[in-house]
Design a protein around this nucleic acid. Structure first.
Lengths: 188, 188
DNA sequence: CTAAAAAGCTAATGGCAATAGCTAAGGCTG
DNA sequence: CAGCCTTAGCTATTGCCATTAGCTTTTTAG
């Protein structure tokens, strides 16, 4: 029987494909095994457990997500940067709804790449505040506000939580305007 | 063998107890069966499936949550009402972290009590806007903003997503101040 | 008092994660 | 080039969970 030529990286790739095609909840070792043409227990040669695979997927997704936010923030400032980052954040979640939840997992402290990817993602949001003159302790609060707002909107939208027929795009624009108003008036 | 005297309501009560003691993810039919002193398949006499039980739990939790928000909003207006509703929202999630996720499930359209509980919860948030003179179409956007902000903050907090040592209580106060500023400046 | 409805049971199936232990592929060393 | 040893992959197995089928016993309605 010829070898499949797997590796931890290839297993994570397959896991991403499963998640993209069938959603975050469909990420099972059985599904990844089927996709890679291997028996389920064989995956344990490359991955310690399902939990560990989820964490690896989270690291890869967080890395990608951080890049998206950083590119959106680059070369922009103030309301301009806010709008660009907010739009990129929501677009990522809508285009890759299966991945988005993995961008929200708390990084494993034992995985430096994962930790630093998480810091980069938060850093991109943090960077938006510079244009508003918010810094120091106040910036921690403001970052939490922005993250909460964006994550809340996006996760309610993905879950189908906005029942009324009104335009969700329009509501998102208003949300970003509201965040802009809040940051303009931010104390400190 | 004496009967256990179960009913759909009693099964839901037991499910709530499981969720309170062991978290939302621990809600399994096996756990509910163990707690009610019955064999797992016996539960199917009272509940159609695990999915259906989760929906019943969601209806009960949403009902309770809506009451909490309504009582917080009652007799208050403007920033006062905003602060009270926000505090009640977060306090509920922190005190009953196993229940909170069930307050966010999209109601089953076939269950009128569930649908109306969901509408009451959204209505309590909607009511806060009256004091800001926000109405009509604009109020839909503003409600979505408030829900997003509160849900985002609370779910990040419960997930342990705020890594830095700064006070989360303080950040929440700032978040509510920010929402207040946004609503004062709300267009329409 | 009797019959049917309802509540509970055991047995069985199928999906999943995980472990143990075997086998064979392929690289490394002599 | 030969043999060894590391390691990828396999099958078999266990255990947990949801779900279905079909039986028994209690309770209730007539």
């Amino acid at each position: 029987m010829p070898r499949a030529g797997l590796s931890t990286g290839a297993v994570v790739e397959a896991a991403l494909a499963v998640v993209d095609e069938q959603g975050a909840a469909a990420l099972t070792l059985a599904a990844v095994a089927a996709r890679t043409g291997v028996a389920t227990p064989s995956l344990y040669k490359h991955v310690r457990s399902l939990e560990a695979l989820q964490q690896l997927v989270s690291a890869a997704v967080t890395e990608q997500f951080a890049g998206v936010l950083e590119r959106a923030a680059a070369g922009r400032a103030g309301a301009d940067a806010l709008r660009a980052v907010a739009a990129a954040y929501r677009a990522y979640a809508r285009e890759l709804p299966g991945r988005y939840p993995f961008a929200q997992r708390v990084p494993d402290p034992a995985d430096p790449a994962h930790v630093s990817a998480g810091e980069r993602a938060v850093g991109a949001i943090f960077a938006v505040l510079r244009g508003y003159g918010v810094a120091g302790e106040a910036a921690v609060d403001a970052t939490r506000m922005l993250r909460s707002t964006l994550h809340g909107f996006v996760s309610l939208e993905l879950a189908g939580g906005f029942g009324l027929p009104q335009s969700v795009d329009h509501s998102f624009d208003r949300l970003v305007d509201g965040a802009d108003a809040a940051l303009r008036a931010w104390p400190g």
